[in-house]
Design a protein around this nucleic acid. Structure first.
Lengths: 114, 114
DNA sequence: TTGACACGTGACCATTTGGTCACCTATCTT
DNA sequence: AAGATAGGTGACCAAATGGTCACGTGTCAA
């Protein structure tokens, strides 16, 4: 899990999926190639690692494989590991976060908010 | 930085320092050996990586090297990387954090809070 | 159906990483 | 000063990682 986040290419992949979800391997390959040179296979390998770490979920749709970002494990890291350390800095950081959220009106996921 | 977090021994080390700060190499070695077998050199190597990642600051005090946890970079990860993703889940997670902080009265660092 | 397209597999190689060891330095104690 | 204590260095080795390539499979379109 942390291991999956340890590689810059993988973080780039996550970023790309964060900007627009549901991309194919080909698209992702193109994105990566804007930054570093890498063949399709390399990208596919990284994607596979991300899947194994459960950070990305992929399903086959015809002949393309569509990749989706999975926010759950990141939340978990945030809550059970990072949070533990940020506590030490007191409530300040959380308030700071809240302020941030208020000022940037929430790009909420397409779910039904009651 | 992420790389430094990618190893379980290193996370264990951070945990140990989190529980009690300012430990020597020998102490840390003992802690690690409660979980896995590893020589002093192995532990020292991990410690050095953590220092390079700026997650741990060490200073020599006589003949012992005292290691201290550095919360800053973890905060940074939290704010500039994790936060970016958790935003997607809306304000909820932050409020949840806030609730958590309120209920667990803040073990604040020994700094002057005005 | 034939071929182009999107992707997967297993073998393979170079580099990095995790870990150990023999030896050395610096400090404290007596 | 002498020995014990705490730690550092560089060489070294095994294993994991990152990356590529030659092939093979399934899918769409003409």
């Amino acid at each position: 899990m942390f291991r999956a986040l340890a590689d810059p290419v993988r973080r780039l992949l996550l970023d790309a999926l964060f900007q627009r979800d549901g991309r194919s391997l080909g698209e992702l390959e193109a994105v990566v190639n804007e930054h570093v040179e890498m063949t399709r296979f390399g990208v596919a390998k990284h994607l596979r690692l991300l899947e194994q770490a459960d950070l990305v979920v992929a399903r086959k749709q015809g002949r393309v494989k569509v990749h989706h970002l999975n926010p759950v494990p990141i939340q978990q890291i945030h809550q059970r590991w990072i949070g533990k350390y940020t506590e030490r800095a007191g409530v300040a950081s959380v308030l700071l976060d809240l302020k941030h959220h208020i000022e940037n009106p929430a790009p909420e996921p397409d779910e039904d908010e009651s």
